[in-house]
Amino acid sequence: MGLVESGKLPKPLTSLLNTSRKYSIWIFQWGLACCAIEMGAALGSPRYDVMRLGVIPLPASPRQADLVCFSGTVTDKMVPAIRRLYDQMPDPKYVISMGSCANCGGPYWDSYSVTKGVDQVVPVDVYVPGCPPRPEALLEGIVLLQQRIGKEDMVERWKGEPLVVS
């Protein structure tokens, strides 16, 4: 992709690349707590069927994933592992924070062992609220992320600077 590196990517090509990227997301499921079951229902159950959105669940390793979904309570003991797996994912990578606990600590806002939000550790693209969110809510979060990917500027992304997408 010499075009991307040189910063001379024509607009139709950007749009084509983004479209193909957004409908082939490999989602790495990081089930931490209660939300993991709802995520499992969204990813693995025939009723919600995430594959119709062009999202492929259950990759074997974070190295194959484009999107990681943190669902559940993040504890201080878990944080090093979360950071490590996030670093192993290839760029461009996206993060969905699912559920109140991953968003802000949720019902455990005053606990001594819970991290108050996964965004203290990794940058988050989409927050899905709820305790736990219904599988439909997670699907909507994924759709929002796809819209966001569709608007992305590949050249800006390649520069490695923080992205601001409206």
Partner: peptide, 20 residues
């Protein structure tokens, strides 16, 4: 339960919940 660096004994009554 807690990471190795944790100081204090949480279930003692004089352990403060800092967030509170």
């Amino acid at each position: 339960y807690l990471p190795g660096e944790f100081e204090g004994h949480p279930l003692r009554k004089d352990f403060p919940l800092l967030a509170r």
